[in-house]
Design a protein around this nucleic acid. Structure first.
Lengths: 341, 341
DNA sequence: TCGGACAATGTGAGCGTTCACAAGTGAAAA
DNA sequence: TTTTCACTTGTGAACGCTCACATTGTCCGA
């Protein structure tokens, strides 16, 4: 409306208008009980008239607190904000909520370019801690994380491939077992695992291990249908499933490393006229919204994102060693894609 | 590893270690060309050894910049981070990316409780601007927004119900027309609109208006199947579709106000043994990932989230009036749910 | 030998707060 | 009246940084 950009009012402006000292303004606005009621009212009125808000960056500087945790979501190269695994979003959201519940702000950035990613870690050095969601293969990451930790900051990784870092993960072992048990109980005889083991995604590897252990316990041979890198997880799942169909070696169920892959696989099965769940059972991991609306709806295993987010925040704010290294429990959500009966 | 929490190093610590003055450290780290190369190296080495990072909150305080834009995602009451409309996440992501490209940080919060929401606006007052994603019916919001704007901050709303606020929206009118044109071209004769008009979601209302105008242009009577409030959008869509099925008044296609509703509706149609797209066509809005994996895949209309995010950031950072009030173009994505032929 | 120009570094103020401490009230107790 | 004390408010020093300005050192031409 008006012309020039007017300077933002400070507590001194409020003090002048209210006819008190600046520190009285500070106290009144901070809700200090020592301030007399009439004074407080004068101050509040003046502040409101001027449209004054406390400058948090100054307050925090003085107070010595940051009150902020940084969250970095690492995108895969070429991945945009809209093609990223939706589970990362759910996790991001619950991290923000959990942080907010503990009175912390969250500073969020999405990074695809690793060069810039590291630059950003530095800029964000002023946060109390850093939560990293996603995976990077970049080795120099170690050095950066070390530097950050030397600088008194804590870095917690969701599903880190680096053992030296603090991490929070799903109980992937349990997930693998749950998948096998459920598939066998549903009447499938030859469940295979669909995913990749040679990636920095340790979570995939752990799911495989859980799956393999459960298979052996049941007297069965674990089988891997390896995915190869593609533009999206769905595409990876689709291609791997196509190869599986061509092979046709008696596999009658698939435990996919993530829902996106499972959905891609279901797509491929439909194209090959294989009926899910009759001809082949499919179970995923993540509990994406998309899985609720696929035909058939996708049976899946997943952590509660709220629980996972809370665990991450606790880990990044907690001072106790060890306590931070946690496993988030997973749950089986049974839907149509494994309902053989 | 070590015991007590050591104080974070400051530029004075670096200066002492490097044997130079504090301001030389500042200059060296800021990349000032006036610093001699050997000095810069000494400083960089000392900084690295101490694990020093510039305290951005102090730097920005001194510099007078915030370099931050706040993003608030409003959840519907009872909605958790994982049940929120995924489009909001995609939008959030692209806002973060767009901001980062312009050198800004993003401070993100998810708010369900409106009381706290407003408290948070104040705390976040130190950002250069505020992007609000989601909808609130709360009238006092006006006052808060006014106060924020009086305080020199800019608030931009995604799909605001308040006309006095800056907003960025999809071109919902065009979306309504696109939907009708596509449905008629696909051989449907009686498309209805599924959604609610009495909500603060102006975007829904605008889509209805676009739909209604296109219907009249085609010589047809616009028809509304009203949704009523439920826990999730899917549930709202499901229930409205059930009523539509019971009515069976010749409607042969549905334009749902959002994908989540469309998916819920498809669920209800499947339960009622109505085949999509043969018996009834369905088209949504948002281009959710879930729509790509539904059976049949969902035809939808939507803005490019990246474009929308960029427009929001531009609006919140731009100084020009009017320029900020923008419409983001929408695109039709044709999939199975309207493939009658 | 000296002074001026230029390059590199040091000095000190101040960004807008909070907080420990000092100081000013007025009423109750001596 | 004087002392005491509770209750409020004012004063001034930080927080860690950047930037305008002052200072130092070095080289070169007169």
């Amino acid at each position: 409306m008006s012309g020039g950009a007017t300077r933002r009012p400070t507590s001194f402006d409020v003090a002048e208008r209210a006819g008190v000292s600046q520190s009285t303004v500070s106290r009144a606005l901070a809700g200090s009980p020592v301030i007399a009621e009439p004074t407080r009212n004068k101050v509040l009125k003046a502040a409101e008239e001027l449209g004054y808000f406390v400058d948090e960056r100054a307050a925090r500087l003085r107070r010595g607190s940051t009150g902020t945790i940084a969250v970095v979501v690492i995108c895969r190269p070429g991945e945009s904000a809209s093609t990223i695994n939706p589970f990362a979003y759910a996790l991001l959201g619950s991290v923000c909520v959990a942080a907010s519940e503990r009175g912390f702000e969250t500073l969020v950035s999405f990074q695809a370019n690793e060069e810039r990613l590291f630059g950003h870690y530095q800029e964000r050095g002023w946060a109390d801690g850093l939560v990293v969601i996603g995976t990077t293969t970049n080795e120099p990451a170690w050095d950066y994380f070390r530097k950050l930790e030397a600088g008194g900051r804590k870095v917690v990784y969701w599903g880190s491939p680096f053992d030296e870092l603090e991490w929070v993960r799903s109980d992937n072992h349990a997930a693998g077992r749950l998948a096998v048990e459920h598939l066998l109980a549903s009447g499938y005889r030859n469940p295979c695992f669909l995913g990749a083991l040679d990636t920095p995604q340790v979570q995939f590897t752990e799911r495989w291990e859980g799956y393999a252990a459960a298979m052996r316990d049941a007297g069965l041979e674990p089988r891997l249908v390896a995915t190869v890198n593609a533009a999206t997880r769905e595409e990876e799942g689709r291609r791997a499933a196509q190869r599986l169909v061509e092979r046709s070696d008696g596999v009658d169920a698939v435990f996919a490393a993530c829902d996106a892959m499972a959905l891609g696989a279901m797509d491929a099965f439909a194209a090959a006229d294989l009926a899910v769940p009759q001809d082949i059972g499919v179970i995923g991991f993540d509990d994406l919204l998309a899985g609720r609306f696929s035909r058939p709806p996708l049976t899946t295993i997943g952590p509660d994102p709220a629980q996972a987010g809370a665990a991450l925040v606790e880990a990044v704010l907690g001072t106790e060693e060890g306590e931070a290294r946690r496993r988030v429990p997973v749950h089986l959500i049974t839907r149509g894609s494994t309902a053989r009966t």
